[in-house]
């Protein structure tokens, strides 16, 4: 079972799963990987995707705010990065992570800019030319499952002020200082409520997977390779077994 190490930041229970931190491959060397890719090693390219894929996904989703688009740009990010690495364009191989992060961000920003221009240039056509983004049946089922979990997590918050805080932050995306001032909360309280909500949600998700197992996967269509959260939930459930 993962042990959550308290960081003891001014008494707030904030934790990172230290066991996972220890799992980082101590043999991993960005310089070695960059050099192998430069020399045309195909396995090294796979290792690059395996090591940095999750982070690239987070960056692309954060910039695009569109999961499907992020998935489209994911391969393009690695294609561009590998092309540059093969050409030896990375001056400091130790900064491989920064280089990949920058590649992903630039690609997503450029795409966003181009899309924005297209949409504004063809103002009248926008409504009809937007792709159909309605989720499929399985995606819809998972969405409902998660929505129900979120409702339980938020519903279990005893303080109505905390509930309002989370909803305003996540739904209206109001800035933290404005919410804190309006609800008379300290920034520490704000962080603590969010952190605990995240932990509760995660716990419930893991419990749900543990309880329903394959039934959950068959109903939602989720598989470990398709969804990071589900993957982690399964892994965590596995670690919790005696």
């Amino acid at each position: 079972m993962i042990s959550w190490a308290s960081l003891a930041v001014t008494g707030i229970e904030i934790g990172f799963p230290r066991d996972l931190v220890k799992e980082i491959d101590s043999q991993f060397s960005p310089s070695r990987l960059a050099e192998q890719i430069r020399s045309g090693d195909a396995e090294a390219e796979e290792e690059l995707v395996g090591h940095f894929g999750r982070g690239i996904g987070v960056i692309l989703r954060a910039v695009t705010r569109d999961r499907e688009l992020a998935e489209d740009l994911y391969q393009e990010t690695f294609r561009l990065a590998v092309e540059k690495l093969r050409q030896g364009a990375l001056n400091d191989p130790e900064k491989l992570g920064s280089f990949l992060a920058g590649t992903a961000r630039n690609l997503a920003s450029d795409h966003r800019r181009r899309t924005f221009r297209r949409r504004t240039d063809t103002a009248g056509d926008t409504l009809t030319s937007l792709p159909d983004t309605a989720p499929d049946q399985l995606g819809e089922l998972l969405r409902k499952e998660k929505a129900a979990l979120a409702r339980r997590v938020i519903g279990e918050l005893e303080n109505p002020r905390d509930r309002e805080m989370i909803l305003r932050f996540y739904v209206h995306e109001e800035p933290k200082p404005a919410i804190c001032e309006d609800l008379d909360l300290t920034p520490r309280h704000f962080d603590r409520v969010l952190f605990r909500a995240r932990q509760r949600y995660r716990k419930k998700f893991v419990e749900r997977v543990a309880r329903e197992g394959k039934d959950f996967t068959s109903r939602t269509g989720e598989s470990p390779g398709e969804h990071h959260v589900f993957h982690e939930a399964l892994a965590e459930h596995g670690k919790q077994r005696p």
């Binding site: 980082i24 940095f52 690239i56 929505a147 909500a197 995240r198 998700f205």
Partner: peptide, 25 residues
């Protein structure tokens, strides 16, 4: 975070909760 599993985990769960709350609304 691109090279830190624990931060990636925090980011991914935060992303997921955000999406779940919005879906619930």
């Amino acid at each position: 975070f691109i090279d830190c599993p624990s931060c990636l985990e925090e980011l991914e769960w935060a992303e997921d909760l955000r999406g779940a709350v919005r879906a619930a609304v």
